[in-house]
Design a protein around this nucleic acid. Structure first.
Lengths: 336, 336
DNA sequence: GATATTTATGTTACCGATAACATTAAAGTA
DNA sequence: TACTTTAATGTTATCGGTAACATAAATATC
């Protein structure tokens, strides 16, 4: 390993002078600067981040914690985050909590241990509060992305669940649907709560009945489909929904798959709509009607906010950025 | 920040004893161990990774460098890598080189600076050699994933480009296609070279002519589509291919999109097949005929190999693992 | 020309953890 | 009982940088 001492020997100066050259701090004559730079080049010196961190307490590393790396929504978030971080001279550690509070906890400890300067996080659920408190304790700023957490005040960037839900439900109602089911994420995630509340509210506004047995609790990833479907299938014929609002893209995909398995056609027999768009490759055969959120911008702007906070350029009160969502009507929703 | 000294004061022992408790090294009496653990718990102590690294030269961090975080193939690789790393007590830094040699270079410097124990890398192209040499210079072991690099000997894990290409071309030939084009990745990527060589070889084996103007150079991500298409469209009617072999999934998707833009139907007018499967959500409407590679296992086994190397459990000669690919016939390929 | 100021460089101590060696107390052995 | 061994704990030095202070040489000021 090449160190600052190797450079100092080769350039015949003190290690401190080398440090000054590297950091462009203090006064260094042109002649010595040249000598040192030559030595650095020659030995292929790369500064040791750990040693630096130990004195400086700044790592120039940020982290993005997402809950599902296989969801194209989060992939786009990651891409935006990465671009912004790179642009402003930070490195990004990408962590995938998998909607699992324990994995999230492990990652947070790891990040503290590593000494990241800040964290952009999609908390897995309300219990994430404990993990976020740990960050606070270690004075590591964080921005909540996509989801809020009860009892945690912080900078936030997220979509407008209410507006989005309203748009997509109005779309269904305009198509003539009156029996609309919701297959939701877990209620200890803020977006799921908001979507459900707005679902109920919107139905009521339009004078439609809200039926408990058309409200299903599922999971934002790939779980307990069976339970939801056995409940759904046990409904009387005349109670069957004519449309399903899935709280995210993964749920929607799973729902359509399960329906088809049972020879129920979408959209002929039942319409399906959801939050969040799919992989761009889907443009090939645009099928699913969605409320799309600007995922890339979530990441891009989120990191910007985080860096503002890290570098203390942010106002002392917390900022909340709400990004608009857009209804994209495709073939999975049809009039009744 | 809580340090080992804070713990040592609270527990009334020396810092060294605290260190022993944390690392379960040396002898510590049950009574002191309990005292120390209580203090650690109480103060919520998290060891400082930088300080540790400085003496131990072991970070327990690995890195995975991929070339396209928006490609579901790599997302699955990442997932497999993450699972294995976590399972064996390592952390994973995910980097996205974006098929860009300079970004790759920056990331490698950053990883050296951070002191990662090893790197699982999909090199962006043959020029990556320089970057890989830097790793070698810093004695950081790496495993080549998916792609080889000329002049670099190392552990490798990749798919069988030849077998896969052969399978998918035979499939087309069996369907009666004789004019088969290839839209390839850049030839300074090993997989592209192998696919092209095998393309030529397979056509010849089957007594089919190999025509230069049916061989197109594109990019594994989202570039120079236009150039390829203007060339393709300038072909005489009777020279037109009846099938296109795209060297990866992204190229295939772009190809189909461009064809459709020009009202050319797939598969009625032209069949399209490719390497690598798409996002699992595509199962909804399985369209593209592909040669699928076990992406998850690329990551999973790749990290296993890397850790073997890092912990010096690997044989001194380099290992090459070749994973089989599988032809999945769907609707995008039809008989002529 | 003597003193004050600025510029360029060096020295020392420290960040938090641990390896290597040192010390003390307890247990085992002749 | 005296002496060796082992167990339990402590002390010191070090990893690679840098902040803070120190010093020497060059330049400016009166």
């Amino acid at each position: 390993m090449v160190t600052i001492y190797d450079i100092s020997k080769l350039a015949e100066v003190s290690p401190m002078t080398v440090s000054r050259v590297i950091n462009q701090s203090g006064k260094v004559s042109e002649a010595t600067r040249a000598k040192v730079e030559k030595a650095i080049e020659e030995l292929n010196y790369i500064p040791n981040a750990s040693a630096r961190y130990l004195t400086a307490k700044k790592s120039k590393i940020l982290s993005l914690i997402i809950t599902d790396i296989n969801n194209p929504f989060f992939t786009k978030v990651a891409r935006g985050a990465e671009d912004k971080a790179k642009q402003l001279g930070y490195r990004l550690m990408l962590c995938n909590s998998d909607e699992d509070i324990h994995k999230e906890s492990d990652y947070i400890n790891m990040l503290i241990s590593t000494g990241v300067d800040g964290v952009l996080i999609t908390p897995s659920e309300d219990k994430s509060k404990k993990n976020l408190r740990t960050l606070t304790k270690y004075k590591i700023p964080f921005i909540l992305l996509d989801r809020k957490v009860e009892g945690i005040a912080s900078d936030e960037i997220h979509g407008d669940s209410q507006e989005g839900t309203r748009k997509v439900l109005q779309h269904l109602i305009e198509l003539g649907h009156e029996k609309i089911a919701i297959i939701n994420g877990p209620l200890d995630v803020s977006t799921a709560r908001e979507r459900q509340d707005t679902y109920i509210e919107t139905l009521q506004t339009h004078g439609l009945p809200v039926k408990d047995d058309l409200i299903f609790q599922s999971h934002y990833k790939n779980k307990n489909k069976d339970e939801v479907f056995s409940k759904l299938l046990s409904l009387d014929k005349d109670e069957w929904p004519t449309a399903i609002f899935a709280a995210n893209n993964i749920i929607a995909i799973n729902t359509i798959k399960e329906l088809r398995k049972r020879s129920i056609r979408v959209p002929e027999d039942i319409s399906v709509v959801c939050f969040d768009d799919l992989d761009p490759a889907y443009d090939l055969d645009p099928f699913l009607t969605v409320v799309s959120q600007p995922a890339y911008q979530f990441g891009y702007t989120g990191i910007q906010m985080l860096i503002d906070r890290v570098e203390k350029n942010a106002p002392s009160e917390f900022r909340k950025i709400v990004l608009p969502s857009e209804l994209i009507v495709r073939r999975s929703s049809a009039s009744i």
